[in-house]
């Protein structure tokens, strides 16, 4: 069992086939969205490419531009496959960006308040608790409605709705870690408090935060899709998955199922895959679930 913790971790992760498949799905999605411009037949955001003659065509339709719309087209005549890949790009991009900012902000709030203590800790953690007592979607909805449309506004809404989970987790972990002997040993060397926090406490708080992060990236994606579905997300010229679903929703009963269903399937597959990876990571990092 010699090796770095990361090597050991991967060896254990590999043993769960489902998690490996889920991880492959997530990685392939990320790759596909990164390579989107060369992979898909059409730039769905370039309005010059769109013609209403191609609108709402079923899968397999050969359009005016001369290529086959494998998954059909939407109400504006966009190639749905292209729109989904670009939509995934937005969803993943927003989800990961929001997750990372919420991680950094929340973890800092939690760890610093644990270390500083006193009134600052009390106030910061009560705000976090208050926020955790509301559903995240409620706060995100209100913020998105107040701030208006746009990527930055959406990011703010997502981060504000989610940092609290990181702050709570980081606070708990940091409070548990800072009373351990190795922290006392580092402080009594003496090493500066900043070094002790960054080099000892933070790395040891990471496992629970990573678990929260995987779950929260999936939640961010779902939250963004929800906001977009309700028309509070990104502008309609750059449809994310939520908006694609919303746009197709009105045609669902008229038999043009593909406009809603395919983006929906893509969204579900991505979220489930991320959650499966997260579950395995949690099982491996949570010592209480270990034999």
């Amino acid at each position: 069992m010699a090796g770095t913790p990361i090597a050991d971790f991967w060896a254990e992760f590999r043993a769960n086939r489902v998690a490996v498949v889920a991880l492959a799905v997530v990685l392939l999605t990320v790759l596909a969205t990164l390579a989107a411009p060369i992979l898909v037949p059409q730039d769905p955001y370039d309005l010059a490419n769109l013609t209403l003659r191609d609108a709402r065509r079923p899968p397999g339709y050969v359009g005016t531009a001369g290529f086959t719309h494998v998954l059909g087209t939407d109400a504006q005549g966009r190639d749905l496959l292209s729109a989904i890949v670009y939509g995934l790009r937005i969803s993943l991009g927003m989800g990961i960006t929001a997750g990372c900012i919420a991680f950094a902000f929340g973890a800092t709030v939690g760890a610093v308040s644990s270390f500083v203590g006193g009134r600052i800790e009390t106030i910061a953690m009560r705000i976090v608790d208050l926020q955790l007592s509301f559903p995240a979607i409620l706060l995100a909805l209100v913020l998105a409605a107040v701030l208006g449309q746009g990527k930055t506004q959406l990011l703010i809404a997502l981060v504000a709705a989610q940092y609290a989970y990181f702050a709570r987790t980081a606070h708990g972990a940091a409070t548990a870690e800072r009373h351990k002997d190795y922290v006392e040993a580092a402080l009594s060397t003496p090493l500066p408090a900043r070094t002790v926090i960054l080099r000892h406490i933070v790395p040891n708080c990471l496992p629970p935060l990573i678990v929260v992060a995987t779950v929260q990236v999936a939640n961010s994606i779902a939250l963004e899709a929800t906001l977009s579905f309700l028309g509070l997300g990104l502008p309609p010229t750059e449809p994310s998955l939520g908006m694609l679903i919303a746009n197709g929703f009105q045609y669902l009963l008229s038999g043009r199922y593909w406009i809603s269903i395919y983006p929906g399937v893509a969204l579900i597959v991505l979220i489930v895959a991320i959650n499966l990876v997260g579950d395995q990571v949690r099982d491996q990092l949570n010592p209480r679930l270990r034999r």
């Binding site: 913790p5 002997d181 190795y182 006392e184 040993a185 580092a186 080099r199 000892h200 790395p203 040891n204």
Partner: peptide
């Protein structure tokens, strides 16, 4: 077992 940082 407690006085050495497990991740270092």
């Amino acid at each position: 077992f407690a006085s050495l940082d497990p991740r270092m």
